[in-house]
Simulated scan of single mutants.
Amino acid sequence: MKNELALYIHVPFCLAKCHYCDFVSYTYSDEAAGRWAVAVKQELALWARLPVCSGRTLATIYIGGGTPSLLPAETLGSVLTAVRRNFAVYPAAEITLEANPGTVEPDKLTEWRRLGVNRLSVGVQSLEEKHLRFLGRRHTAQQAEETVQAARAAGFANIGVDLIYGIPGLGGREWADTLRRVMDWPVTHLSAYALTVEQDTPLGRLVAAGRVILPDEDEVADQYELLLEVVPAAGLKQYEIANFARPGHSCRHNLNYWLGGEYLGVGPAAWSYLAGHRFANPAEPADYMGLVASGTTSFHLAAPLEPREELVEALLMGLRLRRGIDLAAFQQRYGVDLLADYRPVISRYVRLGLLEMVGGFLRLTGRGLLLSNAVLRELV
C-alpha cells in the first residue's frame, strides 16, 4: 500500500569489529550512544515534516547495526518513543531488534518486549568455537543457545538466527551438525550466508597475503545444498535465496526491500528509498550529526534513480525470492515485458534448467539457486 512505509534504524556501535565485517560501526560507549540517540530523534522529526513521509504509517521497524543489543533500554526506549511521536505505527507492525549473544540479559529482554519489540534477529554465525574466533566473534556457542532460549522464555515468539557457511576449515559434517542443532532451538527464521571477503577488512588482508585460503566454489555449493536439505526438513520453508521461515514468520521488513517497497533509513550510513530516490546518510557520526543539526535530511541532497537503475534492482531483488518475479506486475510497474525484451537470455536459462515459469512468475529453479550469481549477472 502506498501509505505504508518501512523504517530502518542504524545503531553504529559494536564491542569490537568482526574480522570479515565492512559495515559502518564504531566502538560503543554510553556517551556516544547518547549523542547518537539525540541525533536520530532530531532526524525523525525532520522526516516527519517532509511531504515524502508525512501521513504515512510504519508497517515494519528494523533496528540493526552494529550491535543494537548494546544500547541501554532507556536509550532504545527514547528512540522508539520518538518514532511513535512522529509517525503512525500499525498495531501489528513487525518490530525487529538485532541482538548478539553475550550482550543480552533477561532484564533487557523484558524491557524490549515492553517497548514493543516483537522479533529478535540473533547473530549466531557459528556453533564451533574455532570458527567464532576466526570470524572475530566475541561470544561462545553456549551463549548463543542461551540467548535464544532466554528470548523464548521472555515471551518472544518470533526469533531469527543468522549463520555463516563457506568458512575456511568448515567441513560438511560440521555444517550439517550446526544446522541440526539450531533447528532444535525455538527459532522461527534462519538466514544463512556464504562468507564474503571484503578487501578492506582484516580477513580481506589475510586472504590477499595468502595467509588464509578460502574454500573452493564446489565446497561452498555443497554446503548450500546441505542447507537446502536440512532446514526445510525441520519445517522452515525457503522464501529467499538465503532465508527460511516457519509459516507466517517471513521477515516482512526484508520482503519490503525485495519487493521494491519504499523505506526510510535513519542514523549514520543508513540507506533510504523514497519517491524514486535511493540515498544514504553520511557514515561519519560527526558529519551525520552536522547534517541533522542543520535541519537538512539526505533526501535534500539525493538525485532520482534512472529508470534503468530501478529496473536492474527490481530484477536482482525479485529473482532472489523463491516465488520469483510477477511478470504482469513487473510490466505494469516498469513498462518492461521481460519475456519479450529478455527472451534470448531467459530462453537459454530455461533450456539449461536454471529458470522456470510457474503461474505467471519467472523464478530460479532449485539448480538455478546454486548458479544464481551467473544468471543475475547476465540478466542485468
Rank of each mutant, 00 (worst) to 15 (best):
E284Q: 10
G248Y: 13
C14T: 08
R343D: 04
E31A: 15
V380W: 10
Y20Q: 06
A157F: 00
L316D: 00
G353T: 02
P344I: 07
L7S: 01
R377G: 05
F87E: 04
V358L: 02
W185H: 08
L379M: 13
R152P: 14
V336Q: 03
V117Y: 03
G210M: 07
Q125E: 06
T103Q: 11
A221K: 13
F134M: 14
W258P: 13
R56I: 11
G318T: 02
I241T: 09
A303K: 05
V182K: 11
V124H: 10
P304S: 13
V89R: 02
T140H: 08
P247M: 06
I241P: 01
A270S: 08
V83I: 07
P202F: 15
I346W: 09
T196V: 07
W185C: 12
V11Q: 00
I63C: 11
N373S: 07
V38Y: 00
L214D: 09
Y20R: 06
R84M: 10
V40Q: 06
L354C: 01
A328N: 03
W112I: 12
T57M: 08
S25K: 00
H19Y: 08
L236E: 04
L46F: 11
G171H: 09
V89L: 12
T196I: 07
L354H: 10
H10P: 01
Q238W: 00
G171A: 13
A270C: 04
C21W: 05
P232I: 04
A48P: 08
V52M: 08
P344Y: 03
G34F: 01
S294P: 01
V312C: 00
P282G: 08
G368C: 05
A245W: 03
A286T: 12
G260S: 10
L226N: 01
I164K: 04
V89W: 06
G166Y: 05
F244P: 07
A48F: 13
L132A: 15
I95A: 05
I95N: 04
S250V: 14
V104H: 15
H249L: 04
V207H: 12
V122K: 10
